[in-house]
Amino acid sequence: MDFSIFGYQFMQNAILSAFLGGIACATVGVFVVLMHMPFIGVTMSHAAFAGALLGLWVGFDPLIGAFAFSLVAAAIVGPLADRGELSPDTSLGIIFSLMLGVAFLFLGLMPGTKSSALELLWGSILTNTRGDIILLAVVAVVVVGLVVIFFKEIQATVFNRNIALSVGLPATIILYGVLFLTGATVTASLRSIGGLLIFSLILNPAAAAYQLTYSMKWMFILSAIFGVLSGWVGLLVSYLLDVPSGATIVITSSVIFIIATVFSPKRKVRHWKEESLADE
């Protein structure tokens, strides 16, 4: 088998992007899983996609559009999650479908070929530039850095926001910080992974780590490892089978989740509970 391709600059860029994007997405994913808000992430990634398309259509940097739209989505979904006023699933479903509608509207209005727009949909990690990598690196360092610095505040907030508030922690600021980081991570990874696929890379590694450990610290570490592994194995499979890399990365992350679920020590708890119920 010829692996000389890994000597090329574009492939090295892709490997580095998968490493940085994997860490950033998987770290943010831990919040998404522990705060039970997967729909928030889906909504924000589609908002980012819509914003990027607006940029492409009007003629400014798609990443600025993506970031602005994901912040707007955070500003709408944040209070919903915070106050719990409406059923979050219903209201997020409406915002999610609105963002998707807006995205396809921009796609339809865009003159000429849609190849650059479709790249944002499916992602193309193999065309990542030095600029993309720097952005991914900045986001990954900021995300990991904030988790390390504010670990105890984050730990308390994801355990129970009301308890965190009641001991005097700024839990509301932490919640909005998490939404902001999700928006930034989605934006930075949009070009590599794509608006439709990015969310799987956020959710799957963290959900896999969640199956394997009762330590939050280890959940962050395992999630990051699974995120990077998804990216690298996905890239390799994409090269070997000559299929789109965004798709193989996401499928790899799903396979990791399935394997983690099968081997989860937490399933034993359920078996034990089922057995004791059967005994009664």
Binding site: A156, A164, V167, Y210, Y214, S215
Partner: peptide, 24 residues
């Protein structure tokens, strides 16, 4: 409480100290 929550009893009790400890 989610039965899979990745925190043990000791860590949950420690949350009570976090506000007193302050940021950083």
């Amino acid at each position: 409480i989610d039965p899979r929550m990745p925190m043990d009893v000791r860590e949950v009790v420690m949350i009570g100290r976090f506000g007193v400890l302050g940021l950083f």
